[in-house]
């Protein structure tokens, strides 16, 4: 693939650009925010947007722009870490299933079945009862949920590739299952994985919001977009702004990621369209 080809897909450019912009906004919060987010000054709460506080202040007098920056980072971080878990465990599982077949494949599918039987909210509830709520809980819950998704994508894609001539040639040349998986299957399903990863990233951000909303995700004094939404919920009729800011941020990030995913899919492999990659997996 080359960049020029990618740039021919405007939705990819817009989506990726917007998503990157949000991610950067979050990353900047690591080194700088207009105000420290732990700094509570009750006397200056519920300020509207003004030059000192571009997005106003929240119910504890914290600067909303700083919170959005830091919250965006948390949301991305949770979704991304969950993605790493899903890809890191799910893809090898799926590849192993395709390359070895037989008992390995059976086992992988059964593990997927069991994992899939636990909706992420349920995993989150179980983990939270054990270890208490927090970002780590959200990461694990969403991450575990991602595993069967990637296992199936990897296995499905690998099986489609496995029938092709060069794989047979490799096998004739004496390559073992592991080598076949690493050298032939993995590179050929990379684009499939990347597209699914974009989708799971956006789902992860939504899932983090949902978990934080029911109190299982990020906890104060850290913040996330979902937690900001939760904190502002009861104040919505009085200070709707406090809910609109994080709500809109979530919506925009998710749209950006989804558009980027659509664009990537078209750009990387037009055939993927028909494989019906879906958002239903969240």
């Amino acid at each position: 693939m080359n960049w020029q080809r990618l740039l021919r897909h405007p939705s990819l450019v817009i989506g990726l650009g917007a998503a990157t912009a949000f991610a950067l906004l979050g990353l900047i919060s690591l080194v700088w925010t207009p105000y420290p987010i732990e700094q509570i000054v009750v006397a200056r709460r519920f300020l509207g947007p003004d030059p000192a506080h571009w997005l106003g202040t929240d119910h504890l007098g914290r600067d909303m722009l700083s919170l959005v920056m830091s919250g965006t980072l948390t949301s991305f971080l949770v979704a991304f870490s969950a993605l790493v878990i899903g890809v890191g465990i799910g893809v090898p599982m799926g590849l192993a299933a395709a390359a070895w077949g037989g008992a390995v494949e059976w086992l992988v599918l059964r593990i997927s079945d069991v994992t899939f039987a636990f909706p992420s909210v349920v995993i989150a509830i179980l983990i939270a009862t054990l270890a208490g709520p927090g970002e780590l809980n959200a990461i694990l819950a969403i991450g575990i949920f991602n595993i069967p998704v990637f296992a199936r994508v990897a296995r499905g894609g690998a099986l489609a590739v496995a029938t092709q001539d060069y794989v047979a040639a490799g096998r004739l040349a004496g390559l073992g299952n592991a080598a076949i998986a690493a050298r032939h299957l993995l590179p050929n399903i990379a684009s499939l994985i990347i597209v699914q990863a974009t989708i799971q990233l956006s789902l992860g951000i939504l899932a983090e919001a949902g978990l934080s909303y029911i109190g299982l995700g990020t906890q104060a004094p850290a913040t996330s977009l979902g937690l900001m939404l939760r904190d502002s919920q009861s104040l919505f009729l009085i200070h709707p702004w406090l809910g609109i800011v994080p709500g809109l941020t979530i919506v925009l990030i998710v749209i950006a990621l989804n558009i980027a995913g659509d664009g990537l899919r078209d750009a990387l492999d037009p055939r993927l369209r028909r494989e019906g990659l879906n958002h239903g997996a969240g």
């Binding site: 069967p148 199936r152 499905g156 894609g157 099986l159 019906g276 990659l277 239903g280």
Partner: peptide
């Protein structure tokens, strides 16, 4: 793999 073409390869498609 013809049956697979209609199954989404992810999240619960039960190809196996």
């Amino acid at each position: 793999t013809n049956a697979m073409r209609h199954l989404p390869p992810c999240g619960g498609g039960r190809e196996g």
